[in-house]
Each structure stands twice: as structure tokens, then as C-alpha cells.
Simulated scan of single mutants.
Amino acid sequence: MHPLTYGDIKAAADRIAGHVRPVTVARAEPGAFRTARHDAVGERPEEACEVWLALEFMQHTGSFKARGAQNFIQAHRAVGTLPDAGVTIASGGNAGMACAWAAQQHNVRATVFLPVAAPAVKVARLRGYGADVRLVGTEYAEALAACEEFAAATGALASHAYDHPLIAAGAGTLLEEIHQQIPDLDTVVVAVGGGGLFAGVATAAQHHGIRTVAVEPENCRALNAAIEAGRLVDVPVDSIAADSLGARRTSAMALHAGQHNGVRSVLVPDADIVRARQALWDHRRIAVEHGAATALAGLLAAGDPGPDRALPSRGYRPGSGEKVCVVLCGANTDAGTLMQP
């Protein structure tokens, strides 16, 4: 598979224009986030960093996945490669919903496989989009195997939750929209599961000279481990955010993007993810899933910047005057689990 290119993302942006909701960005209150410590003698007093939140959870189906799914369906439709059996996908929930939604928009059948532990709210919404939902296994890998067998037997077009260039390119259109609204952005912070969002965003960010901070739970570190090893590796999956970030292995596209000089990979513990999610609710009345809160946890964690690509590192602290955008990528969650302040 060839590395994702900026041209892929531009083509996706043209293809899905008018079919997805443009992202809204909102600036956080000045002083809400700490900047890096500076110990140099005589250095100028530090400026506050400027933090923006990209409210992508307001996207169709409640997550960024709608972008890639729309790009995937439209690209195949344009060249006449959508079979009568429709499309099929294995997904922890969000990608399946996006695939079902995009298929419904084009009157295409969708069969979605996901683990039996998928949140009930996601299963219900999948069926609401008209998908044939099949619950298989306890992990994403088992659902994927069943999906592949179904595609081979029926001729259905197999999509993927993250490991496909059309899916990743669609996700990358998010950075294009953010850059249009914040043209002097320094850094974008994204949560990473399988790596589709990261690969797309990091590829577009590199084109614009923007740093990408990839945030993963400590015990769901497929990208971090791959960068450290220099190759794709399987990792254990055990995090409160595993329903959306629980990929056992990242994609080759994500590893390639992760090896760019402008990328920093950081890890955060589940406790910080829970705190970040609760803080969004307490201070902004935003209810996101734990996967989305993982990105913000990367900014709230008590880490120091260190070398640009130090591995592993807990959290990312912006420099003085740095402009940062944190992607809140999904909100398919049970809001009842949030405590009332």
C-alpha cells in the first residue's frame, strides 16, 4: 500500500464537499492550559499558549468517521465498483455507523460486524441507519475475520475501520478545514486507535508545516509501539477508551506518517482520560466518548515537551505562544456516566 499523500486528501475534500458538516472550532479560555517550563537564565517571560477545540463530534453519526466513509462510498460509486451485495465493515462502533450512514445516503446495503461488547447505544444507532448488525467475538480482530469471510462469500465490498487510503484521506479533510480557520496553527492533537484519523491528519499537517501530537492510552499503544519498534507490532488492548481506540495493530500508513519529523507520540493513563472527559462536561457541557477525551488528556497530563520525538512520554505541554488545536473526534457515549458537578 502506497503512503498516503496530500493529493489523496485534497481529492477527498473535493469529493465529500457538501456531504459532511464542516468542523466548528472553539477557542478555550486564555490560561486554561499550562505551557512548558523554561529554565534558561534571562529568557523572556512566557506567553500563554492558545488552545482551540475542534468540535468534530458534531459530525454526522457523531464522529469523524463519516468523512472517510463518505469518501469510500463515493469513490467506488464513481467508478462503478459498488456490488449488489453492498458494503461490509468490521468496527468497534463509530466506523460501522459511518459506513451504514454513508451507504444509506446512496441506497447501498451495509452489513456491519462488531464485538459483542460494543456499547448498546452504538448497536441501536447502527440498526437505526438500516444496517444488518452482526455481533461476533470479544475483540475487533475476531469481528474483522468474520467480516472478511462474509465479503469472500457474498462479494460485498469490504471497507475498513481505519486501514484504507480512502478512509484515511477522508479523515484528513478535517485538518484542511481546521487550517482554513486557524491558518497560523502550530500543533494539532489527535487521539489514535487504529490510525486512520492520525494518518490523514498528520499527512495534511506535514504539508502545512504543522506539528501532530498523537495521543494513545498507555495500554492501547499500537502506534507508539510501532514507531518505537520501527515496524508494525501487535499490542495488548486494555483501556477505558478501548471501544474506539482498541486496535491491536496500527496501519502501515499510520506508521509511515508517525515517522515524520513533525510528529510526537505520547501516552496517557486511563485516569487522565476520565478526568479530561469529566472536565469537558463540567466546564463546557460537552459529552464526548473516552476516545475523544484521550486527545485532551494528552494536553492536560503533567508531561514536559522533551525531545520532539521522545518515546514514550506522558502528555504534551505547549510552548509559550504556541497555537494548538485539540480534536474532539466523537461523542457516541452514555452521558449518564458523567457525574453532575
Results as ranks from 00 to 15, higher is better:
residue 73 I to G: 01
residue 106 H to E: 15
residue 85 A to Y: 08
residue 100 A to C: 04
residue 132 D to N: 12
residue 74 Q to E: 14
residue 118 A to I: 13
residue 120 A to G: 09
residue 114 L to W: 09
residue 124 A to D: 15
residue 74 Q to T: 00
residue 97 M to H: 05
residue 86 G to R: 02
residue 97 M to D: 07
residue 130 G to N: 08
residue 64 F to C: 00
residue 95 A to W: 11
residue 84 D to S: 14
residue 107 N to Q: 15
residue 109 R to Y: 06
residue 133 V to Q: 07
residue 130 G to C: 11
residue 101 W to Y: 14
residue 73 I to F: 08
residue 65 K to E: 04
residue 63 S to P: 02
residue 99 C to L: 15
residue 79 V to W: 13
residue 107 N to Y: 11
residue 82 L to G: 00
residue 132 D to Q: 13
residue 75 A to I: 00
residue 133 V to K: 05
residue 92 G to W: 02
residue 82 L to W: 09
residue 113 F to Y: 14
residue 68 G to D: 05
residue 111 T to S: 10
residue 96 G to K: 07
residue 132 D to A: 11
residue 69 A to G: 04
residue 70 Q to T: 14
residue 59 Q to N: 06
residue 120 A to W: 13
residue 69 A to M: 10
residue 84 D to P: 07
residue 79 V to N: 13
residue 97 M to L: 14
residue 67 R to S: 01
residue 120 A to E: 15
residue 125 R to Q: 14
residue 109 R to N: 13
residue 93 G to V: 06
residue 102 A to T: 02
residue 101 W to D: 00
residue 93 G to N: 08
residue 78 A to M: 11
residue 64 F to K: 01
residue 64 F to H: 08
residue 124 A to Y: 13
residue 96 G to S: 07
residue 101 W to M: 06
residue 80 G to E: 09
residue 84 D to F: 06
residue 71 N to S: 05
residue 72 F to D: 00
residue 61 T to I: 05
residue 120 A to I: 11
residue 117 A to M: 14
residue 121 V to I: 15
residue 104 Q to A: 15
residue 60 H to K: 12
residue 102 A to L: 03
residue 107 N to M: 11
residue 119 P to V: 07
residue 92 G to M: 05
residue 71 N to K: 04
residue 123 V to A: 09
residue 75 A to S: 14
residue 103 A to C: 12
residue 91 S to E: 12
residue 124 A to C: 10
residue 84 D to T: 12
residue 81 T to H: 07
residue 100 A to K: 06
residue 109 R to I: 10
residue 67 R to V: 01
residue 106 H to T: 02
residue 102 A to I: 03
residue 76 H to L: 09
residue 122 K to F: 12
residue 74 Q to K: 14
residue 89 I to M: 12
residue 85 A to K: 06
residue 121 V to R: 09
residue 100 A to R: 05
residue 102 A to K: 03
residue 125 R to D: 06
residue 86 G to W: 02
residue 110 A to R: 11
residue 85 A to H: 03
residue 118 A to G: 07
residue 73 I to N: 01
residue 63 S to L: 11
residue 115 P to F: 12
residue 106 H to A: 15
residue 61 T to R: 01
residue 101 W to P: 00
residue 78 A to T: 00
residue 130 G to H: 05
residue 103 A to G: 06
residue 84 D to Y: 07
